[in-house]
Design a protein around this nucleic acid. Structure first.
Lengths: 316, 316
DNA sequence: CTGAAAGCGCTTACAG
DNA sequence: CTGAAAGCGCTTACAG
């Protein structure tokens, strides 16, 4: 691997000059610049990132912490964030945190070893030490799709409770009095959407019935199948179902159809997220839209702004 | 941020000793070790990754190059690879390459700046300079799900042509004489699966009919919808369709049902990949299975083995 | 068992 | 406009 000294030697100049050319600084004789550029081209030289970030004391890299079982919504969201971040000149480093084991702690440790310019949390970490760390070292952080009580880490998310409330109330107004719900308690969005569901029913004067609530461990299509099977056993007297994610809804519909129900003729199903795939499944899934692109761009921009503030003074 | 000198100072020892403790070397007085460990714990010290990889001349990191529009199959595959790599002690760095622009070149440049232990290509890069570079610098590389003619970079993939051949022949033997195909030409797997389709028909003595082939730009559900609409206009005289990916099949089925066809009663649809979602769509999609877990583990193991060989001699 | 010293590859004041 | 020098945070022979 060729390094800056090699280039300098070949050019008959000092590493300082090569560095200036590489970094596009002014005050370099244009003939020398041309020669160095030619040498760089020929030798395929690229500055070593580790050495560079060592002296610069930063990496121009933003970390994204995301569950390794990320769903379609999260996948689309991080894509947008990554693009946007790139346009701001950052690279992205993904931390996929596993659900089992000490993965959160490992993730935190890796985070500490990197000199990140910022971090975007798309995973609702439970370990409070994680947030404490972010705050203590002043690492610019943004929480995407959830917030963290008690700290003032900025977060970007929709009003989950209100979204669910509106959707459920709409169905009720359409005449559905017996509406079940498939939800999960692992994430705050699941709990909040459930609250919205209950509030809507209450508003409509429908008695609260806990047997209409099925809680699943995750928010996948598979969980939706289990959830719906459970529901058909526990409380099959319903005409509509609110699945708190599109993927839960997809699984639920599958089981309903297998059992001979027609959707939406016999049973209405409504989801939440508006992931791409939802318009491809048959029958079409009704869903609550999250403003994906907008959320992604805001997250990236916020992260960028924070990182800039945090790094001001470190520059030349 | 606390560094190794801070710890050394607080402990009243040299950085050398602290380093030995951090790296679990022998020959450290156990009381001193205990004190240092305590200090590390208290101060939240984690060695700076950049400094470390600078002197070690390696990063214990494997890069994964993947299209930013990765499909479900690729998503499941990289998850498995990442897990496996982690169990070998590697971190994973993702390079999402965009379809437009000079993204491949940028990706190559970033690659050069990192001291990766290896790279796994899940994206079929076109630029031959990319492969030349990998070979020239001896960066251990593995191609996942495709291969590269003319070089001996190891690759892991199924026999695409044969898989398609078997599936199509099976349908023909079931009585389907009029079978169309939706494919793409962007990736070699698309071309190979198409070849398998044609060979199967030939084997069955069915005349080659190019009008039964619809080529799409990508392999997504959306492309599948466009493809099927096109097909219904161009050559609607068919009883079966081979979509070369599950996602194409999902889009195709959607259009067929919208147009009043029943699947599979009126039209049989077969996909390829066996992604998780395929069993959740209604009707169930018939598909050709790729041995996902096996492929992922082989890829990671191969990458690990190469990296080890490549790095032998660099260790202490 | 331990520490001083050198060096990994870069950048950036500083002094011409 | 240019180069010698210092320093980023670490690890590892080397010499005790």
């Amino acid at each position: 691997m060729v390094n800056i000294k090699d280039i300098a030697k070949q050019a008959g100049m000092s590493p300082s000059t090569v560095s200036r050319v590489v970094n596009g600084k002014k005050y370099v004789n244009s003939e020398k610049r041309a020669l160095i550029l030619k040498l760089i081209e020929e030798t395929d030289y690229v500055p070593d990132k580790a050495a560079r970030s060592m002296v610069l004391r930063r990496t121009y890299t933003v970390g994204i912490v995301i569950p390794d079982t990320f769903n379609m919504f999260q996948r689309q969201l991080f894509s947008i964030i990554e693009h946007q971040l790139e346009s701001f000149g950052y690279h992205t480093l993904f931390f996929f945190v596993k659900s089992e084991g000490a993965s959160e702690d490992e993730c935190l440790n890796r985070l500490k070893g990197e000199k990140l310019d910022g971090v975007i949390m798309m995973h609702e970490i439970r370990n409070p030490r994680f947030y404490e760390y972010l705050i203590r070292v002043g690492l610019p952080a943004v929480l995407a799709t959830f917030d963290h009580e008690g700290s003032d880490i900025p977060s970007i998310h929709v009003n989950e409770e209100q979204g669910a409330f509106d959707a459920v109330l709409h169905l009720v107004n359409l005449g559905h009095k017996k509406m079940n719900i498939i939800s999960g308690s692992a994430s705050s969005f699941g709990r909040q959407r459930t609250e919205g569901y209950f509030r809507a029913l209450e508003t409509a004067g429908i008695e609260r019935d806990e047997s209409r609530l099925i809680l699943t461990k995750s928010y996948t299509a598979e969980a939706g199948m289990y959830g719906m099977r459970d529901m058909l056993l526990r409380n099959p007297d319903f005409t509509a179902v609110f699945a708190v994610t599109d993927e839960l809804a997809i699984g639920a519909i599958r089981v309903l159809e297998d059992e001979g129900f027609r959707v939406p003729e016999d049973i209405s199903v409504i989801g939440f997220d508006d992931i791409d795939i939802s318009s491809y499944i048959v029958p079409r899934l009704t869903t609550i839209r999250q403003p994906l692109a907008d959320m992604g761009e805001r997250t990236a921009t916020l992260s960028h702004t924070h990182a800039q503030m945090h790094n001001q003074g470190k520059r030349s």
